[in-house]
């Protein structure tokens, strides 16, 4: 096909297009997704018995707020990555990483890190929590990939990794409402780091495959 013929056929397909969602709409969709994942977690896993007390606990609230802020930073970076010609995504990713570092610091400041249960029990309970966090994170990961395909992702692997990591944060947030173990190492490793890292790796793979255009 010659280029002139191609132009002719593209002109025949000229129709009004719906612009990409504004940042405000994206933020609203994200907040809705976070609520949906938390509700799904509550429905599948139940709520922790001491949730009432936890909601008044400053540390619980701060950690969950930080998780949501990290998620927001990832969403901002994703919004930039989905539009050709925008270059500020590196700044936004760096901002997200700083939030992540603060979040990890908040976990490490809490004592005792480890409650002293046997390693076998620590691993088996941890693996159980990780499996559920992954399950909760899978839904926002799939939704994020699907939404991102509507844009024009300039760095599909980076976008996929960010989507996976952010979905892991959502899963960790929802898991915090169900799991009553507050030991910092348990929450950091099994609710947050391992599921987010696994989802990020899967996201990189999926991004290379499905976000190309």
């Amino acid at each position: 096909m010659k280029t002139d013929e191609l132009i002719q056929s593209l002109v025949l397909e000229a129709r009004p297009v719906r612009p990409l969602a504004s940042p405000a709409r994206l933020a609203a969709a994200l907040a809705l997704c976070a609520v949906a994942v938390t509700l799904l977690g509550a429905w599948l896993l139940g709520l922790r018995p001491d949730l009432g007390g936890q909601l008044l606990d400053r540390r619980f609230l701060m950690i969950n707020s930080m998780l949501l802020m990290t998620l927001g930073a990832a969403a901002l970076a994703l919004g930039t990555l989905a539009v050709p010609g925008r270059r500020r995504f590196k700044v936004r990713i760096a901002f997200g990483l700083i939030l992540l570092a603060v979040l990890i610091g908040m976990f490490l400041m809490r004592r005792p890190w480890f409650s002293g249960v046997g390693w076998g029990l620590w691993f088996s309970i941890g693996a159980y929590c990780t499996a559920r966090t992954l399950l909760l994170g899978a839904l926002p990961a799939a939704a994020g990939l699907w939404m991102h395909r509507h844009g024009a992702p300039m760095h599909p692997a980076v976008s996929g990794g960010l989507i996976g990591g952010a979905a892991g944060s959502q899963g960790a947030n929802a898991m915090g409402w169900a799991c009553e173990i507050d030991e910092p190492m348990h929450v950091l490793v099994w609710h947050f780091l391992i599921p987010s890292a696994l989802l990020a790796v899967l996201g990189v793979w999926a991004g290379r495959r499905w976000l190309r255009w």
Partner: peptide
């Protein structure tokens, strides 16, 4: 040109 066509909604 096809990419411009397919992704023209992403231009603000």
């Amino acid at each position: 040109l096809l990419a411009v066509h397919g992704k023209r909604h992403t231009h603000d």
